[in-house]
Simulated assay, not measured.
Amino acid sequence: MWAWILIGAVALIPIILLSPVVAVIALVILITGIVALAKGSRTWLRLNSRKAAMVVTAAAAAVLLVTGSVSAAVLPNTGSSGNEAARFVTAPSPSEARNSDESSQSRPTPTPTPTPVASTRDEVVTEVVPFTETRVDDGALAAGQTQVRTPGQNGEKTLTYRVHLLDGQEVSRELISDVVTTQPVTQVIANGTYVAPPPPPAPAPAA
């Protein structure tokens, strides 16, 4: 019995290193030990007594439990290594990576939309103020005749606009000043109203 215990202790090292294989062997020994206990036979393990069969069965169960725990601890690492392999397989080849870089370089870079620049400026404009005309009656002129007594002259006014610009282009303007700098001169025209009296009648001939 002590020999089997020593063998089991030494077997812990390969159990840890080769847990999947050892788990299969421990399962076979466990089943064989159970059969030996049930039938009372020696089986291929050459177990001389029922006590030895119990020890071997218990040791096989312990080994199976340990290997199961070791396998459970190792399986996540195996999965991660599989993921690494899958990532390595799906990684693009150097030529594909180069083509991708070339396509990204050949793709034009979008230019940012410029922000419109608003500004204002004042603009001064001069305009002509046309003169007006008035008529007066003049008894010194014969009826039907006219005479310019005062010639008319145009005036001038100054207009100041505030011009609103967007990117240098005019979008609107507003009048902020309207000043008459030169007053116009009214033209005066005289209308003749004089009517000559009729000539006196001719004297009658003497009788």
Rank of each mutant, 00 (worst) to 15 (best):
L6M: 11
I7E: 13
I7S: 11
G8E: 08
A9C: 14
A11P: 10
A11Y: 11
L12T: 15
L18W: 15
P20A: 05
V21A: 15
V22G: 06
V22D: 07
V24Y: 12
I25E: 05
L30E: 10
G33F: 04
A36S: 04
A38K: 13
A38Q: 12
K39N: 08
S41L: 09
T43V: 08
T43C: 05
W44M: 06
W44G: 03
W44D: 06
L45S: 03
L45N: 06
R46H: 12
R46S: 10
N48T: 12
N48L: 10
N48K: 15
K51P: 00
A53V: 02
V56P: 01
A58V: 13
A59D: 12
A59N: 14
A60N: 01
A61Y: 02
A61C: 03
A62G: 15
L64G: 14
V66A: 11
G68V: 02
S69M: 14
V70Y: 04
S71G: 08
S71K: 08
A73D: 07
V74M: 13
L75V: 10
L75N: 13
L75Y: 11
G79K: 09
G79T: 03
S80P: 05
S80T: 10
G82N: 04
G82Q: 02
N83R: 15
R87L: 12
R87V: 03
V89K: 10
V89S: 06
T90A: 15
A91Q: 06
P92R: 00
S93N: 07
E96H: 08
D101E: 15
E102K: 13
S103N: 12
T109D: 11
T109P: 07
P110E: 07
P110F: 02
P112R: 07
T115V: 12
T115Q: 06
V117M: 05
V117A: 13
T120E: 09
T120Y: 01
V124K: 10
V125Y: 09
V125I: 13
T126M: 08
E127H: 01
V129M: 00
F131N: 03
F131S: 05
R135C: 04
V136Q: 12
D137L: 03
D138L: 02
A140T: 15
A142Y: 09
A143N: 11
G144V: 00
T146P: 09
T146F: 02
Q147R: 11
Q147S: 00
V148G: 01
R149K: 14
R149H: 08
N154V: 06
K157N: 06
K157W: 01
L159S: 09
Y161W: 12
G168L: 03
Q169W: 05
Q169N: 13
V171C: 02
S172F: 00
E174D: 12
I176W: 00
I176Y: 03
T181D: 02
T181A: 03
T182R: 08
T182S: 05
Q183W: 07
Q183S: 13
V185P: 00
V185R: 02
T186M: 09
Q187M: 11
T193C: 01
V195T: 09
A196G: 00
P200R: 15
P201Y: 02
P205L: 12
P205F: 04
A206F: 05
A207P: 14
A207M: 08
